[in-house]
Simulated scan of single mutants.
Amino acid sequence: MGVRTWIEGWPVYRQLTGTDPLGRGHAARSARTDALEPRTKAADSVARSVCPYCAVGCGQRVFVKDGKVVQIEGDPDSPISRGRLCPKGSASKSLVTSDRRQRTVLYRRPYGTDWEELDLDTAMEMIADRVVKARADTWEDKDDDGRPLNRTLGISSLGGATLDNEENYLIKKLFTAMGAIQIENQARI
């Protein structure tokens, strides 16, 4: 590369000698900049979603190519976030596509030292049996003065912020119907 080619390729030279003296247009562009394409250009489809991390409900656009998520961005049509996402929301693609994401049910037996894989049906049955037993063992019909309580202190819930508002609402209803009174959510803490 000659000196003249190098100087003409220098943005300051183009700014001073060209039609862009403020360096906000063509003078600031390079061949690399001109070759850039949006990460979403190759997507087959776009799905609208809601960020899973907190109770705000920021809108997201999920770009999909060949059945796989290739990018997640803020939805400019969302009245809540107007296309903006916080750092956790901006990184939500890794929540879906990370190779470190757990995809099987793991169980460690009491006093065990190793995890074992369980099928989902077995795990759900174990959870249901334990919830029913805990409720039956700790159910309180009345207090010492005979006033009705209809509650259990043996079950509590701490919901995660990766659930959306609707899921958290249904969980709250479920635990309240079971008689639990200790119900909280990570997004409120």
Rank of each mutant, 00 (worst) to 15 (best):
M1F: 09
M1H: 11
M1K: 11
G2C: 09
G2W: 00
T5L: 02
T5F: 01
T5Q: 11
W6R: 14
W6K: 13
I7H: 09
E8R: 12
W10G: 04
P11H: 07
P11G: 05
V12G: 04
Y13I: 00
Q15L: 13
T19M: 07
D20Q: 07
P21T: 09
R24Q: 10
G25H: 01
A27N: 12
A28W: 06
A28E: 06
R29K: 15
S30A: 09
R32T: 05
A35V: 13
A35K: 14
L36C: 00
E37D: 10
R39N: 04
K41W: 08
A43N: 04
D44S: 07
S45H: 04
V46W: 07
A47N: 14
A47S: 12
R48L: 13
S49W: 02
C51S: 05
C51E: 09
C51H: 01
C54I: 05
C54H: 08
V56C: 06
G57V: 02
G57P: 06
Q60W: 07
R61L: 08
V62Q: 06
K65I: 11
K65G: 10
K68N: 01
V70M: 00
Q71Y: 08
I72F: 01
E73A: 07
G74T: 05
D77F: 00
S78R: 09
S78T: 06
I80N: 00
R82V: 10
R82K: 12
G83R: 12
G83I: 12
R84L: 10
L85C: 09
P87A: 03
K88T: 02
K88S: 04
G89T: 01
K93R: 12
K93I: 04
V96Y: 00
R100V: 00
R100Y: 07
R100P: 07
R101G: 01
R101L: 05
R101M: 00
R101Y: 10
R103I: 15
T104C: 11
R108Q: 05
R109E: 15
R109L: 15
Y111K: 15
D114N: 02
D114A: 09
L118P: 02
L120W: 09
A123D: 02
E125R: 04
M126H: 06
R130C: 14
V131E: 02
D137K: 06
E140I: 04
E140M: 11
D141Y: 03
D141I: 11
K142R: 10
D143N: 05
D143A: 09
D145N: 06
D145H: 07
R147I: 14
P148N: 13
N150S: 11
G154R: 05
G154I: 08
S156C: 11
G159Y: 00
G159E: 01
G160V: 14
A161M: 13
D164T: 14
E166K: 02
E167V: 15
N168R: 03
N168M: 11
Y169F: 12
I171T: 05
I171L: 04
L174I: 13
L174S: 11
T176W: 03
T176I: 00
M178G: 11
G179H: 10
Q182I: 12
I183Q: 00
E184T: 12
N185G: 13
N185V: 07
Q186I: 15
Q186G: 14
Q186M: 15
Q186L: 15
R188A: 14
R188T: 15
